[in-house]
Structure formats: structure tokens, C-alpha cells
Nucleic acid binder design. Structure first.
Lengths: 186, 186
DNA sequence: AACTAAAAGCAAATAATTTGCGTTAGCGCG
DNA sequence: CGCGCTAACGCAAATTATTTGCTTTTAGTT
């Protein structure tokens, strides 16, 4: 029912997980989402359906697992010269990625299952990125919002709009940032 | 695939919809969510499964439809004497309802399907409620945030926390409101 | 190298979903 | 008022997905 977090690397369990994840990613990229089924995934990953059912429970949990792992950023926020610009660049990229069809779908997948572990992971990933920005500003002695302020007044409005309303424009994102960093005119 | 919005009241279609919605509500209240299936719902609603499949497509879409209709508020925000207190009372109730197990599940159901119509409905419902508060403050000449500010800095953080993080405490909600209404000390 | 426990494969049984076709109910029209 | 017309429903057979008991494989341990 629950995907193992740390099956020892190289073990059989890890190989199956990798094959299944890869199969899901391939299929999501190449076909209608409604046509992605566990038997098909199993066939592509060269495992039997019952293996998937036993490990993940159902399609939604598998999709949530895959989506959460794809939502983990692999790089630090790029440096642009100022904390403010770092934040702006990061926020715009975050909004773009999450607003895209694939991004929105991954968020949905993560939220669809009742187990909240995957959603919490997304939140933690975002906070990790923001903490880097906060630390950089701190090192330089630049004024900067707290992590909580960034989550509440930049990340949350972006995510709400993506999920419930219209996807935020770059102007919208810039406006949110101006609100938490009013000292710089921009 | 798509639930009819306005089957003429009294028609057969409307009766089936009402019976199915009722069956879903009853079952969600009384049993494990994972055990709620379309054949069971059909049995309880006295329709055949194929009727449900043809009208709603699959379980997720049906649940999303039911959840959206349950998320529509049936009353105006209560009056408390001041615009600020109205807002605070409304926000606390909103946070409570959405944070509850049933509330969280309904939001999840609404977000789970790729059709965004139901999610947009939720956003509209919230904005309708907030517009009432804005209009009241306007009538009285009290200073008050705009609708957009309320959505961005009160509703969005509450919803983000519910979906991705920990459910917000009343203190947290009050803090968010203080931020958009700093003129009153409270 | 044999042992063990966890995970995977296999296949039969069960359950859900799809679909073709006949039937019914509500609606407009004469 | 009654006569079609159409959209929606019921029914049942066919298909597909899911569950489950049992066996086999595998990686780690002694």
C-alpha cells in the first residue's frame, strides 16, 4: 500500500520501482491520461499487475508517488545578483512549472490520495528552495521576508490560483513579490 | 461524461441525479471511502450502474460533482457588528469547515478530476461570500481589503496549509487577517 | 553455501466497467 | 388530449481490472 522510501539501492525492489516509475512517466507523456491503466503500466515495466497492486494499492497512489518524486527540484535556485531578483526568478519559474499542464496534473495527482505524505513532501521541497533564498539574503545582510511570509503571501496565492482559479501571469507573480518586498521599487 | 447542470426540475434526469447524490452522501458518511463503489451507489440509489457510468464517467467525477455541490454555502456570512469581526468570523468558520476530515476530502475530490469546472465553482462560492463582506464594509464606510487581497492573503494561505501542510489554527487565521487589516489592533 | 524473509510471478476467482439494444418517460406538436 | 420523438434509463453480455492463494525467486545473513 505504501511505497518504500528507501529500498536498498540496487535491490530487486528498487529495480521494480524504477521500472514502474519510468513506465508511468513514459505513458503519461505519450498517451491520454484516461488510458493509463495498471495492466498497461505493468506490461511496459515488465512486471505483473499484482506486483503493482500489492506495492501501491491502486492507480491513484502510484500516480501520486510518481508525481511527488517528479516535483522534487534537482537544482538550487539560480543566483541572479540580488536576493530580490533571485526570489523573482524563482517564483516565476515555480509558477510556470506548476501552471503547465503536466505540473497541474502532478499536483492534482499528489492531492488526490488521502495519504497526505506526498503533499507534505511538495511543501517541504518548496520550503527547502526558499530557505536557500532566505539564507543568501541573510549572508548578504539584505532585508528579506521570512520563510513563513514567503509561503503565505507568494507561494500560497500562486498555488491557489493554479488549483482553483486562473493560472497566474508573470505580472501577477511580480505583484505578489512586491507586496512582501515593498522596500525595493520595481 | 459531464453532469448536466440544469436538467429541468422534476424531470426523470433530475430525480436520478438527486437519488445518486443522496446515495453518495449517505455512503460517504457511513463507510470507508475506499469501499464506496459505483455498483454500490447504484444499488442504494435504485438505478443501474450503467446509468451512473454514462452520466458521470467514473467514480472520481461523480465524487467531484457531489463535493462541489456540498461546498456551496447556503447562507450569507453572519453579521457581527463590524466588518473586521465579520471577516474574522467568516475566515475562522471557513478554515474550520475546510480543515475537517469531510471538508478536506471534498476539496480533494473536487481537485482530483481534470475538469476544472468544479474547482472554479469553489473559488466563485468563496468570492461570493467575500463580496458580501466587502459590500457591507463599503456601505458602512469602513476601511477593508479588496476582494483580491482577501483571496491572496487570507483564503490562499488557509487553503495551502490545509492541502499541503498542517491545518491552520485559529491563531494562524487571525494573524493572516491582521496582516490585511493592520489599522485595527486586535 | 545454505537459510530466511520479503517481494515477485502466476493463475483462478471476483468485481468493476463498457457496450449494444430494447424500453420508458417527458416534452413538443398537432 | 393523444401522438410521436428523443434523451435517458434498464438489462445483460462481453470485456477489463482487481484481488487473492500459492509458488518461486532473490538479496541479504549466517
Amino acid at each position: 500500500m505504501v511505497s518504500k522510501e528507501n529500498p536498498r539501492p540496487g535491490g530487486r525492489s528498487a529495480r521494480v520501482q524504477a521500472a514502474v516509475h519510468q513506465a508511468v512517466r513514459d505513458m503519461l507523456a505519450g498517451m491520454n491520461r484516461a488510458d493509463v491503466t495498471i495492466p498497461l503500466i505493468a506490461q511496459r515495466a515488465n512486471v505483473t499487475p499484482s506486483t503493482i497492486y500489492r506495492r501501491w494499492g491502486d492507480l491513484q497512489e502510484l500516480l501520486a508517488d510518481v508525481a511527488a518524486s517528479r516535483l522534487q527540484p534537482e537544482t538550487e535556485p539560480p543566483k541572479t545578483g540580488s536576493a530580490r531578483n533571485d526570489l523573482q526568478a524563482w517564483a516565476e519559474q515555480y509558477a510556470d512549472e506548476m501552471s503547465s499542464g503536466a505540473g497541474r496534473q502532478m499536483i492534482r495527482d499528489v492531492l488526490a490520495v488521502s495519504d497526505t505524505a506526498n503533499a507534505e513532501k511538495c511543501c517541504i521541497y518548496t520550503q527547502q528552495q526558499l530557505r536557500v533564498l532566505v539564507a543568501r539574503a541573510d549572508e548578504r545582510g539584505e532585508a528579506f521576508p521570512t520563510l513563513t511570509e514567503l509561503m503565505d503571501y507568494v507561494v500560497s496565492p500562486i498555488m491557489y490560483r493554479i488549483l482553483f482559479d486562473q493560472v497566474p501571469s508573470n505580472d501577477c507573480v511580480r505583484g505578489l513579490i512586491s507586496r512582501v518586498m515593498p522596500e525595493n521599487t520595481d
